[in-house]
Design a protein around this nucleic acid. Sequence first.
RNA 1: GUGGGUGUAGCUCAGUUGGUUAGAGCGCUAGGUUGUGGUCCUAGAAGUCGCGGGUUCAAGUCCCGUCACUCACCCCA
Length: 429
Amino acid sequence: MTSDSFQPIQGMSDLAVPEIHLWQRLEDTARDLLSRYAFREVRTPILERTDVFERSLGDTTDVVRKEMYSFEDRGGRNLTLRPEGTAGVIRYVAGQGQDAQEARLYYIGPMFRSERPQAGRRRQFHQLGVEAIGAPCPAADAEAIALQAHLLGAWGLDEFRMEVNTRGLPEDRARVADGLRDALKTKRAELCEDCHRRYEENPLRILDCKKTECRDVVAGLPPVTSFMSVEARDYLRDVLQILKRLEIPVTENPRLVRGLDYYVHTVWEVTHVGLGAQDALSGGGRYALTLGNKTVEGVGFAMGLERVIAALTGQGMDPKSLAERPDVWLVSQGASAFDENLVLMQTLRMRGVSCGMDLQGRSMKAQMRAANRADSRYVIIRGEHEMEEGTFQLKNMEDGVQEELDMPDLIQRLTPATDIAWPDSEEKK
RNA sequence: GUGGGUGUAGCUCAGUUGGUUAGAGCGCUAGGUUGUGGUCCUAGAAGUCGCGGGUUCAAGUCCCGUCACUCACCCCA
């Protein structure tokens, strides 16, 4: 039933079983790998002053103009739910002064954009972002790209494609726009309606228009780098050279465009074939961001985790298979066995054994069904007979083999790790 | 913000040209086996047919509105 009162608000999802297993695995492997690359986590607030985003993303970008969740708080301050992660991290770094000149930081968390949801696009979505602050040189860019490729590989992603381009220096931006307008002047009539608008507003965008008529026109254009300074071209060349030596497979794409205003020099994007219209798993680049009287330079990328998960499940990864199974399910017949099992369950858990039992005192058949549903490896059965004898039935749920054991043997069987010390005073009450 | 598609049990979906008490499969609960799951058989619980209005003797079915979901555009991860 789709009852409105049980539905999260538009474009926001509850992340729960079974997908949550995949989320947790992604986060675990990411944290592990990022620390191997000497990046440290930072958790900045989800809410920032609106101008933090306006100034860093550029107040002409769509993200700022029409996609932000902004509101006034009780003190009349203008606040915004973060639409991306870089701005907040830069705000943090800028406030740290000298100490953070060479910060290597990552974040994982929710971002908010008030767009119409579709496949691969939510209003609340999650990004893992990496920011290498300082070290404004090609090696830093190459390292970030290498890390990105490593991360995607560690997650088990197969068919992703990494494309690299440059935005050039800030002063190259106008030159590129002018150069493109000039080159397109005679062919304007052949462009689509949207691209007519883009010709004025942002000719760079024409380069990644999906319409065939525009693609034909774009194919005949000189590469954007030809409008840029020698410095910009050399920088890109160096980055690509290092990547080659690191054996990171990337494709140079002179038509790759990235939307946010803060990018300079290297930009890149990762796409995946199985994703539909929103096929970008990740985007990144070098940036220079000015906040207050301070400019922070860095290189980084952000990955859309929903999209990574969509790509992985599209590849056949089953979140259910990642669920942890309990070691033991305790089944009891009779009130005293039930009481003793409650105590045994607690003891087992204290010893590192994962276990569960039916707490409602239902029939044995129902308890066995529950054990099966929980996908438990073993079942411990205690009835009147076992209570009298002081024994336990241990049943292996995979092969159905069942044996009667006393407490020391039972403990032996359930604690594979020898370093778990079982007190021999483990008495039944 | 714009356009298309879809809303019937927890899930996936049937539902004839409007015509009695709205169906199936899976799942769930219980029984067949009063001490044993996963297979099988039987029974049961579970639906304001998204919501509101209209047409009609009669609406899950037709009309209008609305909400939600979904896909795409713009743009972006």
